[in-house]
Nucleic acid binder design. Structure first.
Lengths: 170, 170
DNA sequence: TAATATTTTCAGAAATAATTGAAAATACAA
DNA sequence: TTGTATTTTCAATTATTTCTGAAAATATTA
Protein backbone atom coordinates (compact mmCIF):
# COMPACT_ATOMS: atom_id res chain seq x y z
CA UNK A 1 0.00 0.00 0.00
CA UNK A 2 2.75 2.41 0.92
CA UNK A 3 4.60 1.21 -2.14
CA UNK A 4 1.61 1.93 -4.35
CA UNK A 5 1.31 5.43 -2.97
CA UNK A 6 4.97 6.09 -3.61
CA UNK A 7 4.63 4.97 -7.18
CA UNK A 8 1.65 7.23 -7.67
CA UNK A 9 3.46 10.16 -6.16
CA UNK A 10 6.51 9.66 -8.34
CA UNK A 11 4.27 9.36 -11.37
CA UNK A 12 2.33 12.48 -10.50
CA UNK A 13 5.52 14.42 -9.92
CA UNK A 14 6.92 13.27 -13.23
CA UNK A 15 3.77 14.31 -15.05
CA UNK A 16 3.86 17.72 -13.48
CA UNK A 17 7.57 18.17 -14.20
CA UNK A 18 7.12 17.16 -17.83
CA UNK A 19 4.10 19.41 -18.33
CA UNK A 20 5.76 22.36 -16.69
CA UNK A 21 8.88 21.82 -18.77
CA UNK A 22 6.81 21.65 -21.92
CA UNK A 23 5.01 24.87 -21.09
CA UNK A 24 8.32 26.61 -20.49
CA UNK A 25 9.80 25.23 -23.68
CA UNK A 26 6.96 26.44 -25.84
CA UNK A 27 7.36 29.90 -24.34
CA UNK A 28 11.04 30.11 -25.15
CA UNK A 29 12.36 29.06 -21.75
CA UNK A 30 14.93 26.29 -21.63
CA UNK A 31 13.04 23.09 -20.90
CA UNK A 32 15.53 21.89 -18.28
CA UNK A 33 15.38 25.23 -16.52
CA UNK A 34 11.61 24.93 -16.24
CA UNK A 35 11.90 21.33 -15.08
CA UNK A 36 14.36 22.24 -12.34
CA UNK A 37 11.95 24.90 -11.22
CA UNK A 38 9.19 22.29 -11.14
CA UNK A 39 11.34 19.95 -9.06
CA UNK A 40 12.02 22.69 -6.53
CA UNK A 41 8.38 23.70 -6.56
CA UNK A 42 7.38 20.17 -5.63
CA UNK A 43 9.98 19.74 -2.93
CA UNK A 44 8.90 20.54 0.62
CA UNK A 45 12.52 21.31 1.49
CA UNK A 46 15.44 23.00 -0.31
CA UNK A 47 17.49 20.70 -2.55
CA UNK A 48 21.16 20.64 -3.39
CA UNK A 49 22.64 20.35 -6.87
CA UNK A 50 23.16 16.61 -6.55
CA UNK A 51 19.53 16.01 -5.68
CA UNK A 52 18.41 17.98 -8.71
CA UNK A 53 20.89 16.13 -10.93
CA UNK A 54 19.60 12.84 -9.59
CA UNK A 55 15.93 13.71 -10.01
CA UNK A 56 16.29 14.90 -13.61
CA UNK A 57 19.26 12.77 -14.63
CA UNK A 58 21.29 15.73 -15.83
CA UNK A 59 24.92 16.72 -15.52
CA UNK A 60 26.38 18.98 -12.88
CA UNK A 61 27.20 21.74 -15.37
CA UNK A 62 23.69 21.74 -16.73
CA UNK A 63 22.12 21.78 -13.28
CA UNK A 64 24.40 24.52 -12.06
CA UNK A 65 23.89 26.80 -15.04
CA UNK A 66 20.14 26.49 -15.02
CA UNK A 67 19.83 26.92 -11.28
CA UNK A 68 21.83 30.11 -11.50
CA UNK A 69 19.65 31.30 -14.34
CA UNK A 70 16.57 30.66 -12.20
CA UNK A 71 18.16 32.64 -9.38
CA UNK A 72 18.87 35.52 -11.75
CA UNK A 73 15.19 35.49 -12.71
CA UNK A 74 14.39 35.84 -9.03
CA UNK A 75 12.27 32.70 -8.86
CA UNK A 76 14.71 30.48 -6.97
CA UNK A 77 16.62 31.26 -3.81
CA UNK A 78 19.69 29.86 -2.07
CA UNK A 79 19.61 28.51 1.40
CA UNK A 80 22.28 27.20 3.73
CA UNK A 81 22.27 24.48 6.33
CA UNK A 82 24.69 25.00 9.18
CA UNK A 83 27.50 22.53 9.32
CA UNK A 84 26.96 21.72 5.63
CA UNK A 85 29.11 23.30 2.95
CA UNK A 86 26.63 22.66 0.17
CA UNK A 87 24.22 25.24 -1.14
CA UNK A 88 20.56 24.35 -1.17
CA UNK A 89 17.94 25.83 -3.44
CA UNK A 90 14.23 26.43 -3.07
CA UNK A 91 11.62 27.89 -5.35
CA UNK A 92 9.28 30.79 -4.97
CA UNK A 93 6.06 28.91 -4.31
CA UNK A 94 3.50 31.64 -4.65
CA UNK A 95 2.19 31.29 -8.19
CA UNK A 96 1.22 34.92 -8.31
CA UNK A 97 4.73 36.04 -7.35
CA UNK A 98 6.11 33.57 -9.86
CA UNK A 99 3.96 34.92 -12.68
CA UNK A 100 4.84 38.48 -11.77
CA UNK A 101 8.56 37.81 -11.64
CA UNK A 102 8.58 35.93 -14.91
CA UNK A 103 6.62 38.61 -16.72
CA UNK A 104 8.76 41.37 -15.30
CA UNK A 105 11.90 39.59 -16.40
CA UNK A 106 10.63 38.83 -19.88
CA UNK A 107 9.36 42.33 -20.33
CA UNK A 108 12.81 43.61 -19.52
CA UNK A 109 14.63 41.09 -21.69
CA UNK A 110 12.37 40.92 -24.71
CA UNK A 111 9.79 43.65 -24.96
CA UNK A 112 12.12 46.52 -24.17
CA UNK A 113 14.60 45.80 -26.98
CA UNK A 114 11.76 46.03 -29.50
CA UNK A 115 10.50 49.25 -27.97
CA UNK A 116 14.04 50.58 -28.30
CA UNK A 117 14.10 49.75 -32.03
CA UNK A 118 10.66 51.20 -32.55
CA UNK A 119 11.85 54.42 -30.94
CA UNK A 120 14.71 54.65 -33.42
CA UNK A 121 12.37 54.05 -36.34
CA UNK A 122 9.95 56.80 -35.42
CA UNK A 123 12.14 59.38 -37.10
CA UNK A 124 12.07 57.82 -40.55
CA UNK A 125 11.40 60.40 -43.24
CA UNK A 126 10.26 60.34 -46.83
CA UNK A 127 7.03 59.54 -48.55
CA UNK A 128 5.32 56.89 -50.59
CA UNK A 129 3.22 53.89 -49.73
CA UNK A 130 5.96 51.94 -48.05
CA UNK A 131 7.09 54.81 -45.86
CA UNK A 132 3.48 55.44 -44.86
CA UNK A 133 3.08 51.79 -44.02
CA UNK A 134 6.14 51.48 -41.85
CA UNK A 135 5.22 54.70 -40.03
CA UNK A 136 1.78 53.32 -39.34
CA UNK A 137 3.10 49.97 -38.17
CA UNK A 138 5.78 51.49 -35.95
CA UNK A 139 3.27 53.82 -34.43
CA UNK A 140 0.72 51.15 -33.64
CA UNK A 141 3.31 48.63 -32.46
CA UNK A 142 4.68 51.31 -30.23
CA UNK A 143 1.37 52.19 -28.77
CA UNK A 144 0.57 48.52 -28.24
CA UNK A 145 3.91 47.95 -26.51
CA UNK A 146 3.46 50.97 -24.28
CA UNK A 147 0.02 49.86 -23.34
CA UNK A 148 1.23 46.36 -22.62
CA UNK A 149 3.92 47.87 -20.43
CA UNK A 150 1.46 50.00 -18.52
CA UNK A 151 -0.84 47.09 -17.99
CA UNK A 152 2.07 44.97 -16.76
CA UNK A 153 3.37 47.72 -14.53
CA UNK A 154 -0.05 48.20 -13.06
CA UNK A 155 -0.59 44.49 -12.54
CA UNK A 156 2.81 44.18 -10.85
CA UNK A 157 1.81 46.70 -8.27
CA UNK A 158 -1.39 44.98 -7.36
CA UNK A 159 -1.50 42.04 -5.10
CA UNK A 160 -3.24 38.90 -6.14
CA UNK A 161 -6.48 39.43 -4.30
CA UNK A 162 -7.00 42.97 -5.46
CA UNK A 163 -6.29 41.95 -9.02
CA UNK A 164 -8.69 39.06 -9.18
CA UNK A 165 -11.45 40.66 -7.19
CA UNK A 166 -11.27 43.46 -9.65
CA UNK A 167 -11.60 41.11 -12.59
CA UNK A 168 -14.48 39.27 -11.05
CA UNK A 169 -16.47 42.45 -10.74
CA UNK A 170 -16.50 42.96 -14.50
CA UNK B 1 17.75 62.27 -52.60
CA UNK B 2 15.29 59.64 -53.65
CA UNK B 3 18.13 57.16 -53.41
CA UNK B 4 18.91 58.23 -49.83
CA UNK B 5 15.29 57.84 -48.82
CA UNK B 6 15.14 54.38 -50.32
CA UNK B 7 18.22 53.33 -48.42
CA UNK B 8 16.77 54.66 -45.21
CA UNK B 9 13.48 52.90 -45.85
CA UNK B 10 15.19 49.59 -46.54
CA UNK B 11 17.27 49.99 -43.43
CA UNK B 12 14.28 50.83 -41.28
CA UNK B 13 12.34 47.88 -42.65
CA UNK B 14 15.26 45.57 -41.97
CA UNK B 15 15.56 46.81 -38.41
CA UNK B 16 11.88 46.25 -37.80
CA UNK B 17 11.92 42.80 -39.40
CA UNK B 18 14.92 41.75 -37.33
CA UNK B 19 13.47 43.08 -34.10
CA UNK B 20 10.10 41.50 -34.70
CA UNK B 21 11.78 38.20 -35.56
CA UNK B 22 13.84 38.37 -32.40
CA UNK B 23 10.78 39.03 -30.27
CA UNK B 24 9.01 36.06 -31.82
CA UNK B 25 12.04 33.83 -31.39
CA UNK B 26 12.40 34.61 -27.70
CA UNK B 27 8.74 33.76 -27.22
CA UNK B 28 9.04 30.39 -28.86
CA UNK B 29 7.77 31.39 -32.30
CA UNK B 30 9.87 30.38 -35.26
CA UNK B 31 12.01 33.39 -36.14
CA UNK B 32 11.34 33.14 -39.87
CA UNK B 33 7.62 32.92 -39.26
CA UNK B 34 7.74 36.16 -37.30
CA UNK B 35 9.91 37.79 -39.95
CA UNK B 36 7.51 36.86 -42.71
CA UNK B 37 4.72 38.35 -40.68
CA UNK B 38 6.78 41.52 -40.31
CA UNK B 39 7.38 41.68 -44.06
CA UNK B 40 3.66 41.38 -44.75
CA UNK B 41 2.90 43.88 -42.02
CA UNK B 42 5.16 46.42 -43.70
CA UNK B 43 3.87 45.83 -47.20
CA UNK B 44 1.09 48.13 -48.40
CA UNK B 45 -0.06 45.40 -50.78
CA UNK B 46 -0.35 41.61 -50.61
CA UNK B 47 2.83 39.73 -51.56
CA UNK B 48 3.33 36.41 -53.29
CA UNK B 49 5.65 33.64 -52.13
CA UNK B 50 8.45 34.76 -54.45
CA UNK B 51 8.42 38.27 -53.07
CA UNK B 52 8.69 36.97 -49.51
CA UNK B 53 11.49 34.59 -50.53
CA UNK B 54 13.31 37.46 -52.18
CA UNK B 55 12.90 39.85 -49.26
CA UNK B 56 14.13 37.37 -46.63
CA UNK B 57 16.42 35.28 -48.83
CA UNK B 58 14.77 32.02 -47.88
CA UNK B 59 13.75 28.92 -49.78
CA UNK B 60 10.34 28.24 -51.25
CA UNK B 61 9.65 25.39 -48.87
CA UNK B 62 10.48 27.49 -45.86
CA UNK B 63 8.38 30.41 -47.08
CA UNK B 64 5.45 28.20 -47.92
CA UNK B 65 5.43 26.32 -44.64
CA UNK B 66 5.69 29.40 -42.50
CA UNK B 67 3.08 31.33 -44.47
CA UNK B 68 0.66 28.47 -44.01
CA UNK B 69 1.43 28.38 -40.32
CA UNK B 70 0.68 32.10 -40.11
CA UNK B 71 -2.60 31.51 -41.90
CA UNK B 72 -3.48 28.75 -39.43
CA UNK B 73 -2.84 31.22 -36.62
CA UNK B 74 -5.33 33.52 -38.27
CA UNK B 75 -2.92 36.43 -38.62
CA UNK B 76 -2.30 36.21 -42.36
CA UNK B 77 -4.86 35.97 -45.14
CA UNK B 78 -4.80 34.88 -48.77
CA UNK B 79 -5.80 37.16 -51.59
CA UNK B 80 -6.15 36.66 -55.30
CA UNK B 81 -5.53 38.93 -58.24
CA UNK B 82 -7.65 38.24 -61.29
CA UNK B 83 -5.74 37.03 -64.28
CA UNK B 84 -2.90 35.90 -62.00
CA UNK B 85 -2.52 32.31 -60.90
CA UNK B 86 -0.39 33.11 -57.89
CA UNK B 87 -1.70 33.44 -54.37
CA UNK B 88 -0.94 36.65 -52.54
CA UNK B 89 -0.74 37.07 -48.80
CA UNK B 90 -1.42 39.97 -46.48
CA UNK B 91 -1.21 40.40 -42.75
CA UNK B 92 -3.73 41.37 -40.16
CA UNK B 93 -2.60 44.94 -39.53
CA UNK B 94 -4.56 45.81 -36.45
CA UNK B 95 -2.13 45.24 -33.58
CA UNK B 96 -4.94 44.64 -31.16
CA UNK B 97 -6.44 41.93 -33.36
CA UNK B 98 -2.96 40.50 -33.81
CA UNK B 99 -2.32 40.34 -30.08
CA UNK B 100 -5.72 38.79 -29.47
CA UNK B 101 -5.29 36.15 -32.13
CA UNK B 102 -1.82 35.21 -30.99
CA UNK B 103 -2.86 34.92 -27.36
CA UNK B 104 -5.92 32.90 -28.21
CA UNK B 105 -3.85 30.51 -30.27
CA UNK B 106 -1.14 30.13 -27.65
CA UNK B 107 -3.63 29.65 -24.90
CA UNK B 108 -5.15 26.83 -26.90
CA UNK B 109 -1.86 25.24 -27.83
CA UNK B 110 0.11 25.63 -24.62
CA UNK B 111 -1.89 26.57 -21.57
CA UNK B 112 -4.67 24.06 -22.11
CA UNK B 113 -2.41 20.98 -22.19
CA UNK B 114 -1.04 21.94 -18.76
CA UNK B 115 -4.52 22.51 -17.39
CA UNK B 116 -5.38 19.05 -18.69
CA UNK B 117 -2.46 17.51 -16.79
CA UNK B 118 -3.27 19.47 -13.64
CA UNK B 119 -6.81 18.14 -13.81
CA UNK B 120 -5.52 14.58 -13.85
CA UNK B 121 -3.24 15.23 -10.90
CA UNK B 122 -5.98 16.62 -8.69
CA UNK B 123 -7.02 13.13 -7.70
CA UNK B 124 -3.70 12.09 -6.23
CA UNK B 125 -4.09 10.39 -2.88
CA UNK B 126 -1.86 9.60 0.03
CA UNK B 127 -0.15 11.63 2.69
CA UNK B 128 3.22 12.93 3.73
CA UNK B 129 5.12 16.12 2.97
CA UNK B 130 5.64 15.42 -0.68
CA UNK B 131 2.02 14.56 -1.34
CA UNK B 132 0.92 17.69 0.50
CA UNK B 133 3.32 19.74 -1.54
CA UNK B 134 2.21 18.44 -4.92
CA UNK B 135 -1.43 18.88 -3.93
CA UNK B 136 -0.75 22.48 -2.96
CA UNK B 137 1.21 23.20 -6.13
CA UNK B 138 -1.37 21.57 -8.41
CA UNK B 139 -4.13 23.49 -6.72
CA UNK B 140 -2.49 26.85 -6.98
CA UNK B 141 -1.21 26.27 -10.51
CA UNK B 142 -4.70 25.28 -11.45
CA UNK B 143 -6.27 28.31 -9.93
CA UNK B 144 -3.69 30.53 -11.58
CA UNK B 145 -4.27 28.90 -14.96
CA UNK B 146 -8.03 29.20 -14.64
CA UNK B 147 -7.72 32.80 -13.69
CA UNK B 148 -5.37 33.47 -16.58
CA UNK B 149 -7.90 31.80 -18.85
CA UNK B 150 -10.77 33.90 -17.56
CA UNK B 151 -8.75 37.05 -17.92
CA UNK B 152 -7.83 36.11 -21.47
CA UNK B 153 -11.37 35.13 -22.35
CA UNK B 154 -12.62 38.39 -20.99
CA UNK B 155 -9.99 40.42 -22.78
CA UNK B 156 -10.77 38.64 -26.05
CA UNK B 157 -14.32 39.77 -25.89
CA UNK B 158 -13.50 43.40 -25.35
CA UNK B 159 -12.49 45.71 -28.11
CA UNK B 160 -9.34 47.73 -27.87
CA UNK B 161 -10.89 50.99 -26.77
CA UNK B 162 -13.03 49.51 -24.08
CA UNK B 163 -10.07 47.59 -22.72
CA UNK B 164 -7.70 50.47 -22.47
CA UNK B 165 -10.19 53.04 -21.30
CA UNK B 166 -10.97 50.62 -18.56
CA UNK B 167 -7.34 50.32 -17.55
CA UNK B 168 -6.80 54.04 -17.60
CA UNK B 169 -9.59 54.55 -15.10
CA UNK B 170 -7.77 52.50 -12.50
C1' DT C 1 -7.00 16.04 -72.93
C1' DA C 2 -2.04 17.88 -72.41
C1' DA C 3 0.87 21.59 -71.13
C1' DT C 4 2.09 24.91 -67.73
C1' DA C 5 1.99 27.37 -63.37
C1' DT C 6 1.86 27.08 -58.63
C1' DT C 7 1.77 25.00 -54.17
C1' DT C 8 2.95 21.41 -51.04
C1' DT C 9 5.69 17.89 -49.06
C1' DC C 10 9.50 15.89 -46.85
C1' DA C 11 14.21 13.48 -46.55
C1' DG C 12 18.50 15.08 -45.88
C1' DA C 13 21.61 19.11 -44.81
C1' DA C 14 22.68 22.98 -42.12
C1' DA C 15 22.24 25.86 -38.28
C1' DT C 16 21.23 26.50 -33.55
C1' DA C 17 20.67 25.31 -28.84
C1' DA C 18 21.42 22.40 -24.99
C1' DT C 19 24.35 19.31 -22.49
C1' DT C 20 28.33 16.99 -20.80
C1' DG C 21 32.34 16.37 -18.12
C1' DA C 22 36.62 17.49 -16.72
C1' DA C 23 39.58 21.25 -15.37
C1' DA C 24 39.83 25.66 -13.03
C1' DA C 25 38.26 28.56 -9.57
C1' DT C 26 36.46 29.36 -5.17
C1' DA C 27 35.21 28.59 -0.36
C1' DC C 28 36.02 26.67 3.85
C1' DA C 29 38.18 23.94 7.74
C1' DA C 30 42.06 22.22 9.98
C1' DT D 1 49.27 27.37 4.88
C1' DT D 2 47.45 22.95 2.84
C1' DG D 3 43.93 19.81 1.80
C1' DT D 4 39.12 19.01 0.74
C1' DA D 5 34.45 20.10 -0.68
C1' DT D 6 31.88 22.60 -3.69
C1' DT D 7 30.80 25.60 -7.47
C1' DT D 8 31.76 27.49 -11.91
C1' DT D 9 33.35 27.57 -16.53
C1' DC D 10 33.68 26.28 -21.21
C1' DA D 11 35.42 23.48 -25.35
C1' DA D 12 33.69 19.62 -27.36
C1' DT D 13 29.79 16.75 -28.12
C1' DT D 14 25.05 15.72 -28.76
C1' DA D 15 20.33 16.78 -29.55
C1' DT D 16 16.92 19.60 -31.58
C1' DT D 17 15.09 22.71 -34.66
C1' DT D 18 14.98 24.91 -38.89
C1' DC D 19 15.84 25.14 -43.75
C1' DT D 20 16.64 23.62 -48.43
C1' DG D 21 15.60 21.99 -52.85
C1' DA D 22 13.84 18.91 -55.82
C1' DA D 23 10.00 15.83 -56.63
C1' DA D 24 5.09 15.14 -56.17
C1' DA D 25 0.66 16.98 -55.97
C1' DT D 26 -2.62 20.27 -57.27
C1' DA D 27 -4.71 23.86 -59.91
C1' DT D 28 -5.37 26.40 -64.12
C1' DT D 29 -5.56 27.31 -68.96
C1' DA D 30 -5.65 26.15 -73.79
Amino acid sequence: MIYLCLVKLEEAQQKFIQGWGQLGASWGINRTMAQIQAVLLLSPKPLCTDEVMEKLQISRGNANMNIRELISWGVVYKSFIKGDRKEYYYSEKDMWQLAKKVSRERKKRELEPLVQILGELKTIEGNGDEVDEIKKVVKSANSMANRAESVLDLVMKLDENVFFKWFKKK
